[in-house]
């Protein structure tokens, strides 16, 4: 596989839609990396998740174990849990960013991701049923969007590309939906 190309926000993120169908599919486009801004977006999301998700657990651990055994022990364990989750929220996104890349070929969309469990998904373009652009409040603050692609196989078989510039996400979605052959969706 070729080396990924990092692209700044706003620059074209897709291979030309006019890539000749007769060209070898594997060289029709280069691998793209996400905008590095997404690392800080993921860090913010991770920290928010840590606070919301681990807050009650940490409090329960602190008080429950504190009253039952000792507050020194419960404090140490809770501190360890919080430090671990903060470190994870700060470090993991850069590893995920390095592992994440995608490629729009003439025949398929490829998405490669995963730090421990690595996975490359190939979705033939003519199999795409529909595509969503999703933007939560934190993504909105960063001006980034997630493109989610659906096939008839169901949610677990679909691909998503997070951290796209809003314009680029719309452009990519339009290319994916407009260039597919609608005659056969495989169902």
């Amino acid at each position: 596989m070729s080396e990924p190309v990092s692209h700044p926000a706003g620059s074209p993120v897709i291979a030309p839609a006019s890539a000749p169908a007769s060209a070898p599919a594997s060289v029709a486009a280069a691998w793209q990396q996400l905008d590095p801004k997404v690392i800080w977006l993921w860090r913010a999301q991770g920290l928010i998740r840590s606070v919301i998700g681990l807050g009650p657990v940490g409090l329960g651990l602190l008080l429950g174990l504190g009253f039952a055994v000792s507050f020194r022990l419960s404090g140490a364990l809770t501190g360890l849990l919080l430090v671990g989750s903060v470190v994870q929220a700060l470090v993991w996104p850069s590893l995920s960013w390095r592992a994440f890349r995608y490629q729009l070929r003439a025949d398929a969309l490829l998405v490669s991701q995963g730090v421990l469990w690595q996975q490359t998904v190939a979705i033939p373009r003519h199999r795409i049923q529909h595509a969503d652009l999703r933007q939560g409040p934190v993504e909105r603050a960063w001006g980034l969007t997630t493109l989610v692609v659906y096939t008839a196989a169901g949610l677990s078989a679909d691909g998503s590309i997070p951290g796209l510039d809003e314009d680029a996400a719309e452009q990519l979605r339009d290319v994916l939906l407009n260039t597919r052959q609608r005659s056969d969706d495989g169902v």
């Binding site: 421990l116 096939t151 196989a153 078989a157």
Partner: peptide, 26 residues
């Protein structure tokens, strides 16, 4: 009928240098 193809490798599979291909249909 293929809808998508997945090339996957978990951490233990990496130690053994093996991969799997998952093929999805509807």
């Amino acid at each position: 009928k293929i809808q998508s193809a997945h090339l996957v490798q978990g951490p233990i599979q990496r130690q053994f240098g093996v991969w799997q291909v998952h093929v999805w249909v509807a």
